[in-house]
Computed example of a mutant assay.
Amino acid sequence: MKTTEQTALITGASSGIGYELAKVFAQNGYNLVLVARNTDRLNEIANELRDQHGLETVIVIGKDLTQPNAPQEVYDEVKGFGVDINILVNDAGMGEYGLFATETDLDKELSIIKLNVVALVHLSKLFLKDMVRVNEGKILNLASVVSLMPNPYMAVYGATKAFVLSFTEALRNELKDTSITVTALLPGATNTDFFNKAGAEGTRAHQQAQTADPAKVAADGYAALMKGNDKVVSGLMNKTQALLSNVLPDQLTSQTMRKLMERPDESEESKTPSTASTLISLAVIAGGLYWAYTKYGLPGVLKKVNIE
């Protein structure tokens, strides 16, 4: 274990990628402030990480970040402990599956915006001011590969993640003359409880997620953060989709994502879920590359996807 006197605050730390990020920071000797609604689960994780890594400080803050005052309350509690946050990880997020006009719940979608956007902005404002004061710090924002393309059936979720990426890139520019870096982590569908909570279980994207390890996503995010990179797309398939988003028109990327977000028909159910969803993804990628090649030619495609 590496030793450090620094502290990382991680939201959404009770499960999924947030939990895996907490483990990565603990392995590297960071003290932790863990934030989520499930206080009991956070206490279990805190005890686990203290025992395994001998951390001096692991603070648990149970808070529902969809509530307007929650970010300020988190900041005030951290200050009450006398802790300085060196790294802020805005991981907390949620989604809602269905057609926006007729199927999804408005209150749930407004809560998604409050958590994925408002709380992230609020926490960043509070802790970034402290980082600027001492000219030191890092922020990791959990975006998504859907930050780069429209996301039918999860339209509000996809839009919030597009905001996160744009916000991250803008902050990087504003902070370019400081020692503070801001990084966006862009995973694709990952094997967490996200799809079940969003009501998107059984979709092709959910099936594809079964082979995507959240620990690998966390490791990629941590490495990019430490290097001060602007963003990292985790996973080869996701990297390919991200490249195609620079080439294909929005209408085609929207239809591609809609296909992935749909539930498979009976003909696909005869295949193993991961195989079926992977075949769909590969077919979409192959079709996209062919379309781009016929429209732009090879030099044009390489220029658009910035391959050097």
Rank of each mutant, 00 (worst) to 15 (best):
V134I: 13
L142V: 15
K129Y: 12
N90R: 06
E103F: 00
S179H: 13
Y97V: 00
N135Q: 10
K108C: 06
S179I: 02
A92Q: 02
V78D: 01
E73T: 11
V118E: 13
K176E: 15
K114C: 05
K79R: 11
I112H: 09
I139V: 12
M131K: 04
S111Y: 11
H122L: 03
K79G: 09
L99V: 15
A184K: 11
T178A: 07
D107P: 10
L123W: 00
F81Y: 15
F127Y: 04
V117C: 14
I139M: 01
L110I: 10
T168F: 00
A170K: 04
D84R: 09
Y97T: 03
L106E: 10
L88I: 08
Y157L: 02
L175G: 14
V132N: 07
T181H: 11
K129F: 07
T181G: 07
E77P: 08
K125G: 06
G82I: 03
R172W: 02
A143S: 13
L171G: 15
F100T: 14
V164S: 09
K114G: 07
S111P: 14
L120A: 00
L165P: 10
H122N: 13
A119L: 00
P152D: 06
N141R: 05
E136Y: 10
V182Q: 07
T183F: 06
T168L: 00
V121T: 14
K79Q: 12
V164W: 03
K108E: 15
S147H: 05
A101M: 11
T160Q: 02
A92V: 03
M154F: 12
S147E: 04
M149C: 03
R133N: 13
T102A: 10
K114F: 02
F81K: 15
P71H: 10
V117T: 15
Q67F: 09
A184R: 07
V117N: 06
K161M: 10
L128M: 14
E103S: 02
L175C: 06
L171N: 13
L185A: 09
Y153V: 05
M94C: 11
A101W: 11
F100V: 13
D130E: 10
D91G: 05
V74L: 00
F167T: 11
L171T: 04
M154Y: 07
T102E: 08
T181V: 08
V156E: 04
K114V: 03
T168I: 05
F81D: 10
Q72K: 10
T102I: 08
F81E: 15
Y157N: 08
P68F: 08
E136D: 14
E136R: 14
K129A: 05
E77Q: 15
